[in-house]
């Protein structure tokens, strides 16, 4: 029994650690800045970082296969710019949103095909995807475009008051991330696709010899990431009511860092989307502590994220070594 407990601690160690670090960070923050003790401060983490969660879910699947997707920020920005332009042309948002999702998925599938069929390293293909998408966004508009569509405005500005918490509220787009998380958990644990993603990340050759459709799964995973990027773009454009090619620069690194902090190994095969949720919450907590502080500057976020990523990579290799023994 103790043996089994030990095993499951080793197995879930990184996840438990991520959750612990999040709780510690949040408690410390709440001690320092009583404003963070209000429930609303917690929900703000989701309101402000919902798009990060959506990106993180797509990225988790990509990294689980042993790949990487640096194009997420670009596709996000392209989505905001394109939807702003289309909405201002008078296209119905009910057309724009599905169209954006199709576009994001198509870009992702295209990148996946390049990676799989031309055997080019994922990082360079998706780096190209990043440039391509941002470039397209600039071609659409060189400046930020404001969205005046009534539906977008309604979605952006209508708070939903939560039960059980007095005066705590969220917005409709805030729900997208958590909903997608549920879908992602289902995908990862209850479908063949999800299990094959894990198998590929462990050993692509073995997965192929076991008869799994390795190529198709890999391409689909980048398609999924493209879909998530577009979805994040829609959420982002709703919350800012604007579209611009320069939105979310460097976000791919924040997302990768969050996925790593969530216990997903960059070599693939190990990790889960729940960890990613907490990775993103850690980042969000750091940001809000810095905001509450007011005197500490924003660049500390980047430095903290970098240091945490390094620490987590160190911890992961520690766990990997122990498991081997």
């Amino acid at each position: 029994m103790t043996q089994r407990l030990k095993l499951s601690v080793l197995r879930h160690g990184p996840l438990l650690m991520t959750i612990t670090i999040f709780l510690m960070a949040y408690i410390i923050g709440a001690q320092l800045y009583p404003a963070m003790q209000r429930p609303q401060a917690f929900f703000n983490l989701f309101i402000n970082n919902g798009f990060l969660l959506i990106l993180g879910i797509g990225m988790t699947f990509v990294i689980l296969t042993g790949g990487i997707d640096l194009s997420v920020g670009g596709v996000l920005a392209l989505t905001t710019a394109a939807s702003a332009a289309l909405l201002n042309l008078g296209v119905s948002p009910l057309v724009v949103m599905p169209l954006m999702l199709v576009m994001g998925t198509a870009i992702g599938l295209g990148l996946g095909c390049l990676i799989h069929f031309f055997k080019v390293q994922p990082f360079i293909v998706t780096l190209m995807g990043l440039f391509f998408a941002r470039g397209l966004a600039y071609i659409i508009s060189l400046t930020s475009v404001t969205i005046t569509d009534p539906l977008y405005k309604y979605l952006a500005l209508t708070p939903i008051y939560l039960p059980f918490f007095a005066k705590a509220y969220i917005y409709i787009p805030t729900l997208v991330g958590p909903a997608l998380l549920v879908v992602a958990i289902y995908l990862a644990y209850f479908t063949r696709f999800g299990r094959i993603v894990y198998a590929i990340g462990n050993n692509e050759q073995s997965a192929a010899l076991m008869g799994f459709p390795v190529g198709r799964t890999k391409v689909l995973v980048y398609g999924l990431s493209g879909f998530c990027s577009a979805l994040a773009g829609i959420v982002f454009s709703i919350s800012l009511l604007a579209g611009y090619g320069q939105f979310a620069t460097g976000v791919e690194l924040d997302v990768i860092a969050a996925v790593v902090m969530g216990g997903t190994l960059l070599t693939g095969g190990v990790g889960n989307v729940i960890g990613t949720l907490f990775g993103i919450l850690i980042e969000a907590t750091i940001i809000s502590i810095l905001q509450y502080n007011g005197t500490l500057s924003s660049w500390w976020t980047r430095i903290c994220v970098g240091v945490l990523t390094l620490i987590f990579i160190g911890i992961q290799s520690g766990f990997a070594l122990r498991k081997k023994k």
């Binding site: 063949r192 299990r195 094959i196 894990y198 198998a199 990340g201 462990n202 050993n203 050759q205 073995s206 997965a207 010899l209 076991m210 008869g211 799994f212 095969g269 190990v270």
Partner: peptide, 17 residues
């Protein structure tokens, strides 16, 4: 040629689950 990160059961049954 199996995948060590997924469960024993999956290694046996995946593909015919």
């Amino acid at each position: 040629n199996l995948c060590t990160n997924i469960s024993v059961a999956e290694n046996i049954m995946l593909g015919h689950e």
